[in-house]
């Protein structure tokens, strides 16, 4: 079952197509990475999902239903460009935004208390936003995104401007919410974060999807059959003739590519047979970063 389903969605501005016939499915309860270089159309896409703008063509379904007026209360959105009313007090602001998301004043207060206690910031209630540091404001903003217990959360660069401590705090909360069943769209440029957090990804470039699928499957399909070997003894140079290519030679550790017609066991066997002692053996998978750059460059051509 898909929490979010896009079918041939198109969004045009003035004289360029920001989102060009995009379709994908996002499975319920997953953490989903929305990737792409600047100007790829991620923000335009997110704005359509959050009902800020409407698609020119195509359909967006949330939990099987076409986008309607009730959906904004089921979505939590943390935009990349953060903003709060600077002169307003933290408590008033949180209450206001929570009520705009459809909570009653009483519910909002209970749920806000839970989050403020969780982040140990209950004493901020009467402070004005402008008195808080940037990192503190981010925490407040994060609470506004989650307080109404959305089914679908959209986080645009949620860790930008956070110190490592707060990054971990927010990351843990993202995992927590995901465990409780919240589906999360995570938009970022930071590939190491995507690799760490996301289960599925969509890669966009120039308004189109260039790559789509499970992170592990994608990495698998882009693997180049490279293996890193750490060993003791003299390296048998004649292994080249058997269909293995040495990519990197670092004395006691090497990266070897297995050519067509062989597999990793063949490499291991022939190395053992040549009498060297294997200390470690591991497949080198391409990083998402490499795949990202490769795919974007390909689609730009």
């Amino acid at each position: 079952m898909s929490i979010l389903s896009l079918q041939n969605v198109v969004k045009r501005y003035d004289n360029h197509v920001a989102v060009d016939n995009v379709s994908f499915e996002m499975r319920k309860g997953r953490i989903f990475g929305l990737l792409g270089p600047n100007g790829a159309g991620k923000t335009s896409l997110i704005r359509m999902i959050t009902s800020i703008t409407r698609a020119d063509q195509g359909q967006i379904l949330i939990d099987g239903e076409p986008l309607n007026d009730h959906h904004p209360t089921q979505i939590g959105y943390l935009p990349e460009e953060r903003g709060l009313y600077k002169k307003m007090k933290v408590g008033d602001q949180l209450l206001y935004l929570a009520q705009l998301k459809g909570l009653s004043a009483k519910d909002a207060r209970t749920k806000l208390n839970y989050w403020l206690e969780k982040f140990e910031i209950t004493d901020w209630w009467g402070k004005k936003i402008e008195e808080l540091s940037k990192g503190m404001q981010q925490k407040v903003q994060f609470i506004t995104t989650v307080v109404h217990e959305p089914k679908l959360m959209i986080l645009d660069e949620p860790f930008s401007g956070l110190d490592p401590l707060n990054t971990n705090l927010i990351k843990d909360e993202i995992y927590n919410l995901n465990k409780q069943g919240t589906s999360i769209i995570f938009s970022t440029h930071r590939m190491e974060q995507v690799e760490e957090i996301c289960q599925d990804i969509v890669l966009m470039n120039q308004g189109k999807i260039v790559l789509d699928g499970e992170v592990s499957a994608i990495k698998d399909s882009y693997k180049e059959h490279k293996f890193e070997i750490t060993f003791d003894g003299t390296f048998p140079e004649d292994i080249r003739e058997e269909g293995f290519k040495i990519i990197e030679d670092n004395d006691k550790s090497m990266i070897i590519q297995v050519q067509e017609g062989h597999n990793s066991n063949d490499l291991l066997l022939s190395l053992i047979n040549k009498g060297i002692e294997i200390k470690a053996y591991k497949e080198i998978l391409p990083s998402l970063n490499e795949i990202f750059i490769k795919k974007v460059e390909e689609s730009n051509e």
Binding site: T50, I52, T73, Y77, E81, G83, Y85
Partner: peptide
């Protein structure tokens, strides 16, 4: 002010 401090994006995702 709402436009410049960008809170507007959060709000019009609700209303």
């Amino acid at each position: 002010e709402e436009k410049l401090n960008r809170i507007v994006e959060v709000i019009i995702s609700s209303v």
